[in-house]
C-alpha cells in the first residue's frame, strides 16, 4: 500500500505514455490527411524505414557530439573548476557564484532569445560588435558554426548545476586527507589526482547520468535558437522527433524515433548506474 501512490503516478506518467508511444510507433498515424482519420497498424514498418533514414542517423551523430562536448566535457570540466575555485575564500566569491548560477534561473526560451541577439549576423549582433574591436569582420555565427554555438550556449546554461553537484562532492571529502597528504609532501596536483578525483568519481558519474539524459532531451533552447537548422546542422534527435511529428505531421514515425531514443537512454542510464557502483 505504501508504494501504491508512487506506482499509480509511475503508471500514469511513465508506463502508460510509453505504452501508447510504442503502439503509435507501429501505426501510420498522422496529424493531417486520411491517416489521421483512419490510422493503420503497420507493424515494424516505421522501424525499418528508420534504420535506412540517413537523416535520423545524422541527427544521432549530432546528438552525440552535442552531448559529448556540452554536457560531458564542457559543463563537467568548467563546473568542477568553478567548484574548486569557489571553495576558496576570496573577495569576489559571491559575485562569481551568482554569475555562474544565474543562467540556471533563466528559462530556456528566454536564454535562447538572448543568445539569438548575441549571435545575430551582421554588424548589429552583440558578438560581432565585440569582435569588431579586434578588427574581425562580422560573422554568421549561427550559420557558419551552428553546432559549436549551441554547444557554447548549453555549456553556459549547465555550468551552475555541475558546480553545485561537484561542490557537494568536494564538501564530502575530509580535510584530514589533504592535511595528511601535505605532511607526506604531496603537491597540490598530486592531491587533486590521488584524493579529490577518485573520491569525486561517484558524484561525477551521478552528474553524467543526469546531464547526459537531460541533454539528449533538450528542445526549447535549440528550437528557439536555430529550429534545428541551418540545413539540419543542429537537428539533435529531440528536434528531429518534433520536426517529424509536428512539422511533417507523421506521429507514427515520430513515435518510432522516440521509442528508439528511449532505448538508447535506458542503455546509457544502465551503464552509468552500473558505473556508480564503482569501488573507490
Amino acid at each position: 500500500m505504501l508504494v501504491l501512490p508512487s506506482a499509480i503516478l509511475l503508471f500514469a506518467f511513465v508506463l502508460y505514455p510509453s505504452g501508447v508511444a510504442i503502439y503509435t510507433s507501429m501505426t501510420n498515424l498522422s496529424l493531417t490527411g486520411p491517416a489521421a482519420l483512419n490510422p493503420r497498424f503497420i507493424g515494424f514498418d516505421n522501424y525499418t524505414k528508420l534504420f535506412s533514414d540517413h537523416t535520423f542517423w545524422r541527427s544521432l551523430v549530432i546528438t552525440f557530439w552535442f552531448v559529448l562536448f556540452s554536457a560531458i566535457i564542457g559543463q563537467l570540466v568548467l563546473g568542477l573548476l568553478s567548484a574548486i575555485l569557489l571553495k576558496r575564500q576570496f573577495a569576489l566569491r559571491p559575485f562569481f557564484n551568482a554569475i555562474i548560477l544565474m543562467p540556471n534561473a533563466v528559462p530556456g526560451v528566454v536564454a535562447a532569445l538572448m543568445w539569438s541577439s548575441m549571435l545575430a549576423s551582421g554588424e548589429y549582433g552583440t558578438l560581432n560588435k565585440i569582435v569588431a574591436w579586434f578588427g574581425v569582420d562580422p560573422q554568421r555565427w549561427l550559420v557558419t558554426f551552428p553546432l559549436s554555438m549551441i554547444i557554447v550556449v548549453n555549456i553556459w546554461r549547465g555550468i551552475g548545476f555541475a558546480m553545485i553537484l561537484m561542490n557537494s562532492g568536494l564538501s564530502a571529502i575530509s580535510e584530514e586527507l589533504y592535511e595528511a597528504a601535505r605532511m607526506d609532501g604531496a603537491t597540490t596536483w598530486q592531491a587533486f589526482r590521488k584524493i579529490t578525483l577518485p573520491l569525486l568519481v561517484p558524484t561525477i558519474f551521478l552528474y553524467l547520468l543526469v546531464s547526459t539524459v537531460t541533454t539528449i532531451a533538450i528542445f526549447a533552447l535549440i528550437y528557439a535558437l536555430t529550429r534545428g537548422g541551418p540545413a539540419g546542422a543542429t537537428e539533435i534527435v529531440g528536434i528531429y522527433i518534433y520536426n517529424q511529428s509536428f512539422g511533417s505531421y507523421q506521429l507514427g514515425y515520430g513515435s518510432a524515433i522516440a521509442v528508439v531514443l528511449l532505448i538508447f537512454s535506458l542503455i546509457i542510464g544502465t551503464f552509468y548506474v552500473r558505473a556508480l557502483k564503482v569501488e573507490v
Partner: peptide, 11 residues
C-alpha cells in the same frame, strides 16, 4: 493550401 489536409483528417 492547408484545408485539404484538415478536411481529409476529419477535423
Amino acid at each position: 493550401g492547408e484545408i485539404v489536409d484538415f478536411s481529409t483528417a476529419g477535423y
